[in-house]
Nucleic acid binder design. Sequence first.
DNA 1: TTGTACGCGTTATCAT
DNA 2: ATGATAACGCGTACAA
Lengths: 340, 340
Amino acid sequence: MARDSTRPRRATIHDVARVSGISRGTVSRVLNGERYVSDQARVAVEAAVKEVGYVRNTAARNLVTQRSRAVALVVHEPHSLVLEDPNIGNILLGTNAVLSEADYQMVTLILDSQRDSDRVAEYLRGGFVDGAIILSARSGDPIALAIAQLGIPAAFVGHPTDTPDVPFIGIDNTAAARGITERLMATGRRRIGMIAAALDRDSGSDRLSGFTLALGDAFDPDLVVRYPLYSYQTGVDGMRELLERAPDIDGVFAASDAVAAGAMDVLREWGRSVPGDIGIVGFDDSSWALRCTPALSTVRQPADALGRRAAQQVLDQLAGAEPPSGGTLLDTEIVWRDSA
Amino acid sequence: MARDSTRPRRATIHDVARVSGISRGTVSRVLNGERYVSDQARVAVEAAVKEVGYVRNTAARNLVTQRSRAVALVVHEPHSLVLEDPNIGNILLGTNAVLSEADYQMVTLILDSQRDSDRVAEYLRGGFVDGAIILSARSGDPIALAIAQLGIPAAFVGHPTDTPDVPFIGIDNTAAARGITERLMATGRRRIGMIAAALDRDSGSDRLSGFTLALGDAFDPDLVVRYPLYSYQTGVDGMRELLERAPDIDGVFAASDAVAAGAMDVLREWGRSVPGDIGIVGFDDSSWALRCTPALSTVRQPADALGRRAAQQVLDQLAGAEPPSGGTLLDTEIVWRDSA
DNA sequence: TTGTACGCGTTATCAT
DNA sequence: ATGATAACGCGTACAA
């Protein structure tokens, strides 16, 4: 196809060389601030650059230098979840902070459909990025596959079950869930239920495991309800279901703060006081937690640190370090407030 | 720098040609599914591709085809705002949907510091994207400058004041704010205040203008408090300030739903009933609105549509259309619930 | 239908 | 210190 003739062609090094009467090689050297260029040449080149309005084509440069100084952040969440999950934003900011500090460009790729999936895989293969960080990959993820096959430096945030080769940064959801459930038990509750969510991901199923472990013999499967998403609506529906199944329930572990918020609104509606009649705890320590009345007891997840560590992991590999065989688990912290 | 010798070199068309015994030109044709290739050649090439594990270097292809099939979405929000603003996620999803449909890759660039700003400008200039969509650019934005200087197809979401050349998609904040304020006045309130925010952006200052216009002679500057961010905390602080200044206040226009939520929590704390003692309205119709008790009356902003239209605008320009000289304003809608 | 050769815009090597 | 010239990986006009 012929070049689009409506917009003027971008100036190239060629043009600068022609106008300044200096060879391309020297022009390139000036542009990159290398030594061994005369002041005379430098001045002439700089003038020519201004005259023709030259801006470097980084894509072409990358072709020859074989690197792009860009790292992809792949966000693999369907639709609304991107909006509801408070951790994503913090992970993203943490990642960006570290990459930015190292003068790498973070390129965020959002997956919202199968079609996106294929295109993102193509993008990753295309040589536009030197490495990748993947958020919450699912089982059989084509992206994870592309990464593995391509062998570029990468790290997962979260713990994908079926891609053992790539390092990951996560938290110990099981231990954290167990911890806060035990704390809830210690307040003297006898009938404790859980609103579980996102069981197709390690975070969701691990939180349920932790809950089960904590209760031990006291575990009653009827007191667990399961929903696909970590959402406010899940809390609303889940709490209603629990109250109908077991009107005598006196404690609830919600799989996330948003879920807990939904549950608390239902409790108010039903005239159950918190923490008087029912104690409730959440997970994430997101902005939801402080908005609840009473303020929510929950687990603090170091989302920002997760992003930072994942980014650092990729940077290390870029610098030549071997990727660690296993993963890294960051510490969580119980934040005890007034809801239990 | 010598090629990194630790990782094996990626296979190229060259390798495929060598292994299959077919020329590079024909290999390229097979790869692009062009006509005029014999089945024999096609089969041989496909076998060789598998054998050497060839994947196309899209970056190199872009260099010769002079386009990337990627569009940048530049999110220019400091830190926490990315997390709090519910519109951003929806705009982002709308944009991605349209670009994805047209088989364009959306590349999201997050700006969180001055350093990011320079690097993103460099990225935009680098030839990695065919166009750009800019969210909430500020005055004197270096990104907006780079866009204008570069002359690539672009569109703003929101209405930057000092970059007149680039088309924008927005809403009429002034009219919408005026509309909901008038509606609030119609409920019989006499002392109406506003918690204004983000006055450094058109959305913030326009909402204040609309409020002022609606009140007309009844406008009392003492009943307006100003804060930098559209946040829950702004609502908390702002409502306290208003109550201290004017204990007899009976109506509040909050600059966003998050602000309104903060304000309502303070009102509860102070023992003022909503809507009994005080009527309150917000802006955005985000998830905050339904979480408030009572449910918040607010202005619905078509965030998803904003993203879609901006993307379409860029695609049109990419297809050769002239950028419209002015901007496009999408309709808002008052959603009247129970808080006023 | 296929192969050859050139160009995309840049950096890197090697003389000079 | 500088200028030719060869890559980088790919598409494509042209010739065959």
